[in-house]
């Protein structure tokens, strides 16, 4: 028990130092523009299909369920509003973050972990290259930029999917559906979701790179680091979402 507590405290300490070091790295030269572009492409552009597909599915399923639920009350025209507001405030950032943790967060931890166990990070240190700046900063910056962008896209695609099902399949009247949706949905709702996504992106990048950076014990250790990175960052974004929802609501 005592050992477990000490280990946990050590982990928190190591994470705090890593976090501080990564913060300092953001403002220190050299600025690695090419690496940032690579990460923007990997995290952002290459994630468009998976985020598009998952948000389309969520929008369609949500719409199907909501229409069935609201039809007995003749309130099915409100489905557009419910889907759009829920997506903007909660579902789009959460779905986007969870998909990106699975796709990119695990890859970050595995890639950096492999570099650790094959001494590639040590090699950087011998050349006086700060590995935290080299490996973490571009990923953190790219996540902060791309999570909100992809969340915005998820909003649009999800709302479109919901409209297709409600109007095309469930015969909800399109004009009223859209009119109600645009009347209730505000720019603040969308902005709220994007701010959440940026925070989630930061948490994902910093947690996943941390676990990769301190990976040890060969291939098994890298696998364990990836698993821990995915689990911890998933839990962290859900807690952060709750805290932010309370803050925005309050």
């Amino acid at each position: 028990m005592q050992v477990a507590i000490i280990t946990t405290l050590e982990q928190f300490g190591a994470f705090f130092l890593f976090w501080m070091s990564s913060l300092r790295s953001v403002f220190r030269r050299p600025f690695r523009g090419r690496h940032l572009l690579e990460q923007l492409e990997r995290i952002g552009v290459e994630s468009v299909p998976i985020i598009g597909l998952s948000s389309l599915a969520i929008g369609m399923i949500f719409s199907l369920q909501m229409v069935q639920l609201l039809q007995p009350f003749r309130a099915e025209v409100a489905v557009g509003t419910a889907v759009a507001v829920t997506l903007a405030r909660e579902l789009a950032p959460i779905i986007t973050a969870l998909m990106l943790i699975g796709k990119n967060g695990s890859a970050m931890a595995a890639e950096i972990g492999t570099m650790r166990v094959t001494e590639q990070i040590d090699a950087m240190e011998t050349m006086s290259v700060d590995p935290i700046q080299f490996l973490t900063t571009p990923r953190v910056m790219a996540c902060i930029v791309m999570f909100p962008m992809l969340t915005l896209m998820a909003n649009v695609v999800g709302v479109f999917g919901a409209w297709v099902i409600a109007v095309g399949v469930m015969d909800v009247e399109s004009a009223t559906y859209l009119e109600q949706m645009f009347r209730v949905l505000s720019a603040g709702d969308i902005l709220q979701g994007m701010v959440k996504a940026a925070v989630m992106g930061y948490l994902t990048a910093i947690i996943c790179t941390f676990y990769g950076y301190y990976a040890e014990n060969g291939a098994q250790g890298v696998g364990e680091a990836s698993t821990r990175a995915v689990v911890t960052s998933s839990v962290a974004i859900l807690i952060a979402d709750y805290v932010m929802a309370m803050a925005f609501w309050g």
């Binding site: 890639e111 094959t118 001494e119 590639q120 040590d122 090699a123 011998t126 050349m127 006086s128 290259v129």
Partner: peptide, 30 residues
């Protein structure tokens, strides 16, 4: 550290880079 070179046991080549980029890395960074 500019006066030292370090040849690692497992070579520690950056596997995201090709041979030329690996060798050019310290030229650019150091």
């Amino acid at each position: 550290r500019k006066h030292f070179g370090y040849a690692f046991q497992g070579a520690a080549l950056f596997d995201s880079m090709n041979v030329a980029e690996n060798i050019a890395f310290p030229l650019r960074e150091v």
